[in-house]
Design a protein around this nucleic acid. Structure first.
Lengths: 249, 249
DNA sequence: CGACAGCTTGATCGATCTCAAGCACGGTGG
DNA sequence: CCACCGTGCTTGAGATCGATCAAGCTGTCG
């Protein structure tokens, strides 16, 4: 049920359900709505969304948009995992967030995205032109409130991230990261092992650590018995309370 | 014009304009609206806000609310400087943001604030009960859009913060911080020196550094000639381009 | 089976923290 | 008015955590 296969989307239970190929589906059937919008999209809104949506499949490693691009679109991730990264001129990369099915991207942005959207796994995304999308926001009141909550949650996530980066040491950071993934995967129903679809380098750039430190820390947690790692991209939490203690909030 | 006096509010030009003592003023006259809401509040909304507002004066060091408190209020900072801090159980503190007149607090929050609101200087704040405030949001459409933008800006700030904490070294962090304050003070009109109303400990907890490193870094920037410091809480940028280069974005 | 990308592990180095003085300035009281 | 005190800032010396450099290892794919 949770075997690790990166080749086909549906295999990984928390990466969302692939839509049938072809034209975009009516949005109420879309996983993105099921997960975050609780099915509250009405038919009329669904139809209007359908008129401005383009569904895009993407491959692992692909860049969907860059931090320099004019922010003409809003996206809804349907399947797969993405990252939002900000690059400095010398190549340093800060990953701002990992995105999972049901997440929206580029809601709260200025004239340009200030981060690049990159595919961590292959997947599928719905792309909406911003202007008509925003018009729908003002037209459908719950829809607007929904996005206010979305952006609020994103802010809360960013603040947690600030706390991790500003105050926590390497072990606390990695433990917090594992718990974050665990919690995230729990939204899709019970699961046993945490999947790490991203590379060590991506975990490192999310946590402000080096690849080597991430690797050493995982090894340390494994040797101390709070987690097990069936393989390099699968983590089983053996002692949840212990891990929470280590994460320190 | 920019002499450093912490005793009386109006002396510091970027800390906002004190309202006359006594009952809350009609909100269109309020500095908070002038700065961020561009005077777009209409009379009707102003009256309804007035009905639910309480104006509170606070002293330096005072805690306005804690991270444990039920988030029953939304605040608008009118005068003075505040900080939002998250404390860990062992006393570590991450300052999430410094707040200036015109900033709103507690808009995007769950059941509880997840940070404590602390007074960096003495000042004044308008407090609104959350429920009626939210009702006004839905009733007045521009008001709602205004707050969507507010929360979006807050998110952008948090993401900048993540970048600073995740990727930048001590010198880059301090330079970025000075530029942030500079930009912020520029919103209130031209100014010569940057005021640092907060203590070194607060800068340190914002930047994820120790007090000593903040101090040493300021000394280094001073000795290298990009800034001058007439006193410990006043910074003059001598070489803006140099400082931007050091801040690295 | 070989090549390559990504992960792990080891050894060293360096930036920042910690501990410890000393300093500066504002406020207070004699 | 000035000495004293306390708080906050600076500076120095040593310790530490994580980065960097450098192999080796593992699993995947052709």
């Amino acid at each position: 049920m949770t075997s690790l296969t990166f080749n086909r989307i549906p295999k990984c239970h928390f990466r969302g359900i692939s839509l049938p190929d072809g034209q975009p589906q009516h949005c109420p059937q879309c996983i993105a709505n099921k997960l975050n919008y609780c099915g509250a999209i009405d038919m009329e809104l669904g139809n209007q969304l359908q008129a401005i949506v383009v569904k895009i499949r993407f491959e692992r490693g692909q860049t969907l948009f860059t931090q320099e691009d004019s922010a003409d679109y809003v996206f809804a991730l349907v399947a797969g995992v993405m990252s939002c990264s900000h690059y400095l001129a010398d190549g340093r990369r800060q990953i701002m967030a990992f995105l999972f099915p049901g997440d929206y991207i580029g809601m709260a942005t200025g004239e340009r995205y200030s981060y690049s959207g990159e595919a961590v796994t292959e997947g599928e995304i719905c792309r909406f032109r911003r202007k008509p999308f925003i018009k729908l926001l003002t037209k459908f009141d719950d829809f607007e409130q929904h996005f206010f909550r979305e952006v609020s949650n994103e802010l809360a996530e960013a603040q947690k991230h600030v706390l991790i980066l500003g105050q926590k040491d390497a072990t606390e950071r990695v433990a917090s990261f594992l718990l974050m993934l665990d919690e995230r995967e729990n939204r899709y129903g019970a699961h046993d092992d945490i999947e790490l679809p991203m590379k060590r380098a991506e975990i490192a750039d999310y946590l402000g650590l080096s690849i080597e430190t991430v690797s050493r820390t995982l090894t340390k947690l494994r040797k101390s018995g709070v987690i097990a790692m069936p393989n390099a991209h699968l983590v089983r939490i053996l002692n949840p309370d212990g891990l929470r203690d280590i994460a320190f909030d």
